[in-house]
Design a binder for these strands. Structure first.
Lengths: 208, 208
DNA sequence: GAAATTACTGGACGCTCGTACGATACTCTG
DNA sequence: CAGAGTATCGTACGAGCGTCCAGTAATTTC
């Protein structure tokens, strides 16, 4: 007679299950953010969560599933949070301002998660060495950003330029903020927002 | 009776030793660039080099030494290569142009090494999880870049702005190019150079 | 409050890692 | 061309990894 070693598939998860899952996901992101993806073993994660290693195996069939769940959760909450704030702008310039502000603030207020997810995306690979999250998976994000600049070119707010390169530069500026934050936790988000906004508006706007 | 299991310390290395060291360093960077730092085991590196795992141990006492040697080599050759090209500019604007061009071209022409070193810097940690190469180690690079912008402000070519943020943004734009390259190897370096140069000159220059 | 289900534990398994080592092959030098 | 020094190999070891599993504790169900 075999005993159950993994959680049952249910329509509505138990209260305990929901809480444990959240706790484990949180501990995983914390551990990854602090030790790096390659040192974040299940033992380490379990130790931080104060639970036995096997509990993780009980709720997540394999480590892959845990990692994927963490990434999914991050993008679902993050994307909806940010989209809501940006979408009702009346000019491309205003949208650019809001885009920078919303993104930087989100990173600032979700430092551990942002850092952890970054580690995962950079280092999570299949057994044969292929990245699980390839850079082209961020292509929709780049194209969405490029659309902002295309809009501005259409309305005449922006000069002609390669919108894709500009979008990649802006995305890079967002990522850079996260990295700078981990160097200097006292970094002033407001100042960064203002400088980056000014920089990109000047770079994109039509000659006066 | 013990036999020698590591290479002797010599004033001038043997021909074989120099060749093997170079071969191993090269294979290591290749492997790291392709499989990622965390999957680049000594077995994998040895396999690529077509040698036994023990040969690596013969020339490099520990894996750490191999990795550090690879980083050292990269920075020594890279830094001197680029400094030489930029240093005799007559205006800050010209230097900015040269800076972008030289950096992008260097990354373009050293793709594997650039990618490998990036992997190492991001993922190489001490046993307790602390990064070996901390981001503040890149501070001299950032300050050197900031000095370029300060110069331009002093000569009146550039408007007032936070030179450190601008320097971080420019460094980020350089790093971004490398990442974009690994997505799309056909990426046009010349176009990227032109767009980035135009972007930063417009962002930095004084109002006309 | 007994039975059934759910939640958790500690230990064992097979695997790969980095390192260490004894033995063997190659290559110079006298 | 013998022998010392140099270079390479295969293998073995302990540690840590992710996964598995039989058994126990806790909670829910009837």
């Amino acid at each position: 007679m075999r005993t159950k070693t993994s959680v049952a598939v249910r329509d509505t998860p138990t209260f305990i299950e929901a809480a444990r899952r959240a706790q484990i996901l949180n501990a995983a992101l914390e551990t990854i953010a602090e030790l790096g993806f390659m040192n974040a073993s299940l033992s380490q994660i379990a130790k931080r969560a104060g639970i036995s290693k096997s509990v993780i195996g009980y709720y997540f069939p394999a480590k892959d599933d845990l990692v994927r769940a963490a990434v999914d959760q991050f993008y679902v909450t993050g994307h909806t949070t940010m989209m809501g704030q940006v979408e009702h702008s009346t000019t491309a310039t205003e949208m650019l301002r809001l885009y920078v502000r919303t993104n930087v603030n989100y990173i600032d207020q979700n430092r551990v998660a942002t850092r952890g997810i970054g580690e995962i995306i950079a280092n999570f690979r299949t057994p044969d060495g292929q990245p699980v999250f390839r850079i082209e998976d961020a292509e929709p994000m780049v194209q969405g950003t490029a659309a902002l600049f295309e809009w501005g070119q259409k309305t005449g707010e922006f000069r002609p330029f390669d919108t894709r390169v500009m979008a990649v530069l802006l995305r890079g500026a967002m990522d850079t903020f996260g990295q700078q934050l981990s160097v200097n936790p006292e970094l002033d988000a407001e100042n960064y927002i203002n400088e980056v906004t000014e920089t990109f508006i000047r770079a994109a706007r039509k000659e006066s």
